[in-house]
Simulated assay, not measured.
Amino acid sequence: MGAVPSPVLTRALAPHTTLRVGGPADRLVEARSAAEIVEVVRAADAAGEPLLLLGGGSNVVIADEGVPGVALLVRSSGHTVEPLPDGGALVTVEAGEDWDALVAATVGAGLGGLECLSGIPGSTGATPVQNVGAYGVEIADLLVDVDLYDRRTGEVRPHVPAAELGLGYRASVLKHRDDAVVLRVRFRLRPDGTSAPIRYPELARVLGVTPGATVPAPAARAAVLGLRRGKGMVLDAADHDTWSVGSFFTNPIVPTADVPDVPGLPRWPADHDRVKLPAAWLIENAGFGRGYPAPGGRVALSGKHVLALSNRGGGTAADVLRLAGQVRDGVRSRFGVSLAPEPVLVGCAL
């Protein structure tokens, strides 16, 4: 058994989320190792207490009423690197490790693969749950396996292969369920210091390369951070545009036959005769521009990117969901396309 997990003095959850909304938990506990995480989860389950796990709090909207039971802040940290027989590098990471700090460390160590995922807030353990992706790269491209705590059996399951996680577009079998807790994550990275192939056209333009080319990983990281900052997607306490969950809506994927007949609507092919549409384009062309405010002005679309709903100060979860509902309904009315929220909604619904 590890050290005793630390209780947190305040029970408020808003300070532990990037959106800065959410009421209190009955109890708030911090765990700094995988063993402590397991200890807290087992104790809560044995007592029949509800449990909420929070990593970086970057992809969650918590109800203003708060949550019953225990909220567990996952603060385990650290990572190791070891060579693989085929020449790759295996990086093993504790679930609570800050994601962008990990990306910076791997790039600094001459490893490539994660650089296009720079600047994304949150913890490493959350990345396979959401199958986090950006600028043409997603976790599914790099993930080897995860260690899970299975709440049904009370046992730790080491080395669960990525192939068993049902990784899809911003989704996995771990999302929207609470019976498996990520303790540790492993990635296979490139040891030659080059980036993953640059697939995203905007990033390729900034780097001055053709799509499919590779570049030094530090160059790709710098370009991605520049693009994200320009869209208010890199956390900055002084910039309210970054008081958000990042992209609030996923890009809708619809059957080819259901694509709206609208001039200029961008689209990309997806699997099974379906098409991916850009949520940002749909939102903007439904009449919701940058900075569009909710009534009262405490919450608004980011002034830099319409996909982000930002807390301008004093905003509540109810304010966020009210604006999200207005945007969703406006897009549906204008284009007949339904937008789905990307963050996990805790104790609330859209």
Rank of each mutant, 00 (worst) to 15 (best):
Met1Leu: 13
Gly2Asp: 15
Ser6Lys: 13
Ser6Phe: 00
Ser6Ile: 01
Leu9Met: 03
Thr10Leu: 11
Pro15Arg: 10
His16Gln: 09
Thr17Gly: 14
Val21Arg: 12
Asp26Met: 00
Ser33Val: 07
Ala34Glu: 15
Ile37Tyr: 03
Val41Thr: 05
Val41Trp: 06
Arg42Cys: 10
Ala46Thr: 12
Pro50Gly: 13
Pro50Lys: 13
Leu54Cys: 11
Gly56His: 13
Gly57Arg: 09
Ser58Cys: 07
Val60Phe: 08
Val61Gly: 05
Ile62Ser: 08
Gly66Thr: 11
Val70Gly: 09
Leu73Ser: 10
Ser76Asn: 05
Gly78Lys: 13
His79Gly: 01
Thr80Gly: 14
Pro85Asp: 15
Gly87Arg: 13
Asp98Trp: 05
Thr106Ser: 06
Gly110Asn: 04
Gly112Asp: 01
Gly112Gln: 09
Leu114Ala: 02
Leu114Met: 02
Gly122Trp: 08
Leu142Arg: 15
Val146Arg: 12
Tyr149Leu: 10
Asp150Cys: 09
Arg157Gln: 15
Arg157Ser: 04
Pro158Phe: 06
Pro158Cys: 06
Pro161Asp: 12
Gly166Glu: 10
Arg170Gln: 14
Asp179Arg: 12
Arg188Val: 04
Pro191Thr: 06
Asp192Leu: 07
Gly193Asp: 04
Pro197Thr: 03
Pro201Leu: 05
Leu203Val: 02
Leu203Met: 03
Leu207Cys: 10
Ala213Cys: 01
Val215Tyr: 04
Ala217Leu: 03
Ala217Ser: 14
Pro218Cys: 07
Ala220Asp: 03
Met233Glu: 02
Val234Ser: 04
His240Gly: 01
Ser247Lys: 08
Phe249Thr: 11
Ile253Trp: 03
Val254Cys: 12
Asp258Gln: 15
Pro269Asp: 14
Ala270Asp: 15
Lys276Thr: 09
Ala279Thr: 01
Ala280Ile: 08
Ala280Gln: 09
Trp281Lys: 11
Ile283Lys: 14
Glu284Lys: 07
Gly287Arg: 11
Pro295Asn: 01
Gly297Gln: 04
Arg298His: 13
Leu301Phe: 08
Ser302Trp: 07
Lys304Ser: 00
Ser310Glu: 00
Gly314Lys: 06
Ala318Trp: 01
Ala324Asn: 14
Gly325Leu: 09
Phe335Lys: 12
Leu339Phe: 11
Leu345Thr: 07
Leu345Ser: 05
Cys348Lys: 04
Ala349Lys: 10
